[in-house]
């Protein structure tokens, strides 16, 4: 028990690691600010493509979505960061993370948006078009507001996943939260900094996870 506390909950070491870890947290937040809007926007485009009139466009979109849902994000990230340089494309860790995550997240967000749009009855679209609204107007003012409202829990829970995904950036040496904590661990030979990082993730995400659970249960009932 004594060993457990000393290895995982050494508060002195946590205090020493705190500045480094907080800098890492800042990087994580920057990363989130880049990656989440990109994913939300990209996902909307993907959803619209997967609902297009042309069967060719729909199937291409579906194939791409399935491909990027089948590939682990870490593999995609390593491929973009370490593989592309062989083709002459050298990207900074941040750019590599942004691109890999854009590809991965657009697919997941895209599927959520698509389910949302499909859940809005055809009648809404008909009514909007019958008053002369153009397709993009019907989409923006009538269909999307309802679609997003319908899938809000899924959108939020996927955003939580994206925040957790940023920890992968540590593998390509982006100095975000986990990377900084791991560095502190290797300096101190003590796992407490990682416990500190875990605590920070919990503080950030636990309330949202609870909220989503409650939202999901309300909708399912």
């Amino acid at each position: 028990m004594e060993a457990l506390l000393q290895q995982f909950f050494d508060f002195a070491i946590m205090a020493r690691a705190l500045p480094l870890v907080l800098t890492g947290l800042g990087q994580t937040l920057v990363l989130c600010l880049v990656v989440i809007p990109l994913g939300l926007a990209g996902g909307l485009c993907v959803a619209l493509f997967s609902l297009a009139r042309s069967r060719a466009v729909r199937w291409t979109a579906a194939a791409m979505i399935d491909f990027f849902r089948a590939i682990p994000p870490l593999v995609l990230l390593i491929f973009v960061y370490a593989g592309l340089p062989f083709a002459g494309i050298r990207l900074s860790p941040l750019a590599a993370v942004a691109i890999a995550f854009l590809l991965n997240n657009s697919s997941y967000y895209g599927e959520i948006y698509r389910a949302g749009i499909e859940s809005v009855g055809r009648g809404q679209w008909d009514a909007a078009r019958s008053t002369g609204l153009k397709p993009h107007q019907a989409l923006i003012y009538v269909v999307l507001p309802q679609a997003i409202r319908n899938v809000l829990p899924d959108l939020i829970s996927n955003t939580v996943e994206v925040v957790k995904l940023t920890s992968l950036a540590s593998v390509v040496a982006l100095p975000e939260l986990l990377y900084s904590a791991d560095m502190a661990r290797s300096i101190t030979f003590n796992t407490s900094p990682i416990v500190l990082a875990a605590a920070i993730y919990l503080v950030m995400l636990w309330p949202i996870v609870r909220l989503v659970s409650r939202l999901e249960r309300r909708i399912a009932s």
């Binding site: 060993a3 995982f8 957790k164 992968l168 030979f189 990682i194 875990a198 993730y201 919990l202």
Partner: peptide, 24 residues
């Protein structure tokens, strides 16, 4: 359940991987 849903898997993996050997 909440903890394992809120924490990134990589954080958990590193915690267990580096921490457990040091407590035997």
């Amino acid at each position: 359940v909440d903890m394992f849903r809120a924490l990134p898997p990589l954080v958990l993996v590193l915690l267990v991987y580096f921490g457990l050997p040091n407590i035997g």
